[in-house]
Design a binder for these strands. Sequence first.
DNA 1: GCTTGACTTCGAGCGCACTCGAAGTCGTAA
DNA 2: TTACGACTTCGAGTGCGCTCGAAGTCAAGC
Lengths: 140, 140
Amino acid sequence: MTTTEAELTISAVAEATGLSVHTLRYYERAGLMLTPVQRASSSHRRYSSRDVAWMVFLGRLRSTGMPIRAIEQYVQLVRRGDSTVLERLQLLVEHREQVRRDLAEIQASLAAIDHKINSYSEVLGIPADGTTPREGTVTC
Amino acid sequence: MTTTEAELTISAVAEATGLSVHTLRYYERAGLMLTPVQRASSSHRRYSSRDVAWMVFLGRLRSTGMPIRAIEQYVQLVRRGDSTVLERLQLLVEHREQVRRDLAEIQASLAAIDHKINSYSEVLGIPADGTTPREGTVTC
DNA sequence: GCTTGACTTCGAGCGCACTCGAAGTCGTAA
DNA sequence: TTACGACTTCGAGTGCGCTCGAAGTCAAGC
């Protein structure tokens, strides 16, 4: 395994990852590829399976709110080689803590929204919950 | 309960809600108050407890990613009175579905991050999980 | 040979949600 | 009376992450 890899076009990678072709090019321009994307003779991009795996994980980092800048840091560590494994681990653990905090806040907010929905349901006489209907209007 | 209410300054509301004073004024300018905020003789804002409760819920909607535009719609429904309760309910239920989808994606991404962290931990010989250490380097 | 369509680069534009700053107005305390 | 600090308005600026568009290249099929 050196150069011969499964090669995918940018549109295939877009389909596989759920990212747009624009976004894939943007990420590359932003320096977020671990290694340069190979090119066909036509200068079209050819993504290896490793590239695709990385784009998938990159998407995971993004969907949990890691800024592009932070991902850039991570990429630079990967490129510096095995000696940075501990640093990378620390970065990920730190991010995971942030994600857990975000998750907790969203869940708390979801509970508040649930509560409001229940209030409205009661007023409308639609007991979606096991609660007793009440009189009066909903606050807001 | 008509005019006499607990009255708070903007900075007190900022502290109570975790929103900045800038953000509170911005929301008001954006038309997100249910009713006009009362003013002291000095023209300083005086928030009623109902205002504060609404800002808290507004913060919940924002922290779950509801766009300002959508909140604006909701506010307009509230102002139109009791006849819009069903519409409001539908709006909230729709938003809740979106939040649940977002939550599921974040959780899936968190699992992927967990997995990567475990891989790194194994390589470093730090079995954070109940898994056996392995040889070779981490992919990325 | 000509069209079609998928790609290329690169700069510019966009949408969103704040965030800031300047200039002015109060009310209280020294 | 003078200073201070918390407020006011309103326009402009910021940061982020895409997203778009124009102009060009290339390979395959008719």
